[in-house]
């Protein structure tokens, strides 16, 4: 019997680098409030390796975001584009988490990767499109123009980022873990931004009515 060979590895001290690094990241900010993770972990790995872990998270998720972003705009099937866009949103949610914005990360997964992309996928499958570009040349001139324009825009962006980078703070703010919680966001939203919040609700109502009117079966 081969079943007896399956051995479950216990989650030991050397087997949970993510939790340990979280405790390290939190310990950078003395004012943090979440003690769930820090209470259960011990820091047994020297800090030098843990800094590279957060860098590793950034590199992996940003590479995922860039690659899936390029795949979104290069796949000929809209369905494949939509699926890669969901992956892109998930990678961005990981990046938001690495910036301690927990509420926005959850909203990103629920609203963007959940609601909006389900709507897009629903429309794609409803329309049941064929592949596009079957009558075009293999590399139209607008692709070249678009890529050149995009390169120019990227150049301007990067130049501006580098030119302003002397005034950037070098690390996360001290209260970065606090301002990302849902209580902090709700406090700001219902105190200082209550009027824009109501405006957003009216906007969403108008969008619902507009969508129903536009997608109705027949125009009068």
């Amino acid at each position: 019997m081969k079943r007896k060979r399956i051995a479950y590895r216990p989650v030991g001290d050397d087997f949970s680098p993510m939790l340990i690094s979280t405790s390290y990241d939190m310990s950078l900010f003395p004012g943090h409030t979440s003690s769930i993770l820090t209470g259960t972990t011990r820091s047994i790995i020297p800090p030098a390796r843990l800094v590279t872990f957060s860098t590793l998270v950034f590199l992996v998720s940003s590479a995922t975001a860039v690659v899936t972003g390029i795949l979104v705009i290069t796949r000929s099937s809209a369905l494949h584009s939509a699926l890669f866009l969901i992956l892109n949103f998930l990678a961005l949610a990981v990046l938001y988490l690495s910036l301690q914005a927990q509420f926005i990360a959850v909203i990103q997964v629920i609203v963007y990767a959940g609601a909006i992309m389900v709507l897009v996928l629903f429309v794609i499958m409803l329309l049941n499109l064929r592949e596009e570009n079957h009558r075009c040349r293999s590399f139209p001139r607008r692709h070249l123009a678009g890529i050149l324009l995009g390169a120019g825009i990227l150049l301007i962006f990067v130049q501006a980022i580098i030119a302003a980078s002397v005034s950037y703070p070098s690390s996360l703010a001290r209260n970065a873990a606090e301002i990302g919680t849902s209580s902090a966001i709700g406090d700001l939203l219902y105190r200082s931004f209550v009027f824009p919040f109501e405006m957003a609700s009216i906007l969403l109502l108008a969008a619902i009515v507009g969508a129903v009117v536009l997608a109705k079966k027949r125009f009068p």
């Binding site: 703010a173 970065a176 990302g180 957003a200 969403l204």
Partner: peptide, 26 residues
């Protein structure tokens, strides 16, 4: 928002998401 320690940036993201949802529907 995270580097400057100001939560208002995340509020703006919240509104951008609301506008994106409306834009998706319409």
């Amino acid at each position: 928002s995270a580097f400057l320690g100001d939560g208002r940036g995340q509020i703006v993201v919240f509104f951008v998401m609301a506008v994106a949802a409306a834009e998706a529907a319409v």
